[in-house]
């Protein structure tokens, strides 16, 4: 749910990074945090276990600039990827404006990708979202690792609609901002459409 505040002239949008455990969702946020200018970002909050696995969520507020005189603020969240944290994942999707699915390109993680993707579809549905309409981008992460599936193989299994697909190496920043841009663009385009329709 985009929140437009005419008084403070701000647009606030919520983007959620979804995907299997250890796929690189937190690394995406960490890279954005590390490379953004200080005035653009807030604190990166990580609710993680002692072994740095996401327990509830990571959160990074990011101000990208102004659109038509309004500050465009994006609230980036990750969900915990581990299967048994489903209740938490569901909570974080509430009010989401756009979703990034961070897929792990490693051959052995394909089943985990598929399980997580179907869990995403299910959880979006339970909140009343239509997956075919929500702003969405597919990131194929870990393209630098040895035993990975080809882009074609991954696409064959993971494409769900006409989503933008971005190849990434999150720790090096490859594809990270491209992914964010791909989803943010759809969120703002949706905003334009809904403004025109109201």
């Amino acid at each position: 749910m985009t929140f437009i505040n005419y008084a403070s002239r701000e647009i606030n949008c919520k983007i959620v990074y979804y995907g299997p455990g250890l796929g690189g969702k937190t690394t995406n946020l960490q890279y954005i945090y590390d490379t953004s200018a200080a005035q653009q970002k807030g604190k990166l909050i990580s609710l993680a276990t002692e072994t740095e696995r996401t327990l509830f969520f990571d959160f990074l507020p990011l101000e990208l600039g102004t659109v038509r005189g309004f500050k465009a603020r994006f609230h980036l969240y990750t969900v915990p990827g581990q299967v048994f944290y489903d209740a938490s994942r569901k909570l974080i999707l509430k009010g989401v404006d756009g979703v990034v699915f961070v897929a792990d390109s490693q051959r052995e993680r394909m089943d985990a990708n598929l399980e997580s993707l179907s869990n995403l579809e299910e959880n979006l549905k339970s909140h009343g979202y239509d997956f075919s309409k929500i702003p969405y981008a597919l990131q194929l992460n870990k393209r630098d690792l040895p035993d990975i599936l080809s882009v074609e193989e991954l696409k064959r299994e993971l494409i769900r609609k006409d989503e933008p697909i971005i190849e990434a190496v999150a720790p090096k920043g490859v594809g990270v901002f491209e992914t964010l841009k791909a989803v943010a663009k759809q969120v703002l385009t949706d905003l334009r459409k809904s403004a025109g329709a109201s």
């Binding site: 990208l64 600039g65 038509r68 943010a184 385009t189 334009r192």
Partner: peptide, 28 residues
């Protein structure tokens, strides 16, 4: 919404250039 009244919203005029500009900032 029911009255079909259109408030003057700046968002109908968001262009692709506006969106691209958000990401072209050198500070990113």
């Amino acid at each position: 919404k029911a009255g079909g009244a259109k408030r003057n919203t700046p968002f109908t005029e968001i262009s692709d250039d506006d969106i691209d500009r958000l990401f072209s900032d050198d500070s990113l």
